[in-house]
């Protein structure tokens, strides 16, 4: 699971062009969206859907689930491990 989280962090940085960040800057349980976390926005949410599809072959059938799935690296990794 920890390897998955590290991979996810690197992929998030690359996919979202977070040039100033390293994987170590992203906490496993920190919110990815909103002012409390990385400050990602709705376009980034779309990029997450692409990331899950292209890197893990997972399609999100119900976009309304996104808010819960994309909350943090922990929730993303949990969703991937259950659906891959």
């Amino acid at each position: 699971m920890s390897d998955l989280k590290e991979n996810l962090k690197a992929q998030i940085i690359e996919q979202l062009n977070l040039e100033d960040l390293t994987p170590a800057d992203i906490q496993d349980d920190a919110p990815l969206f909103g002012d409390q976390g990385l400050g990602l926005d709705s376009i980034d949410a779309l990029e997450f859907i692409v990331l899950l599809d292209s890197n893990y072959g997972i399609k999100i059938a119900d976009p309304s689930e996104g808010k819960e799935i994309f909350h943090s690296v922990n929730t993303l990794a949990d969703y991937i491990s259950k659906h891959q």
Partner: peptide, 13 residues
């Protein structure tokens, strides 16, 4: 080049 059904939205937008 990408084999998924969905494409990155940022470059398109």
């Amino acid at each position: 080049t990408v084999s998924g059904d969905v494409l990155s939205p940022t470059a398109f937008i």
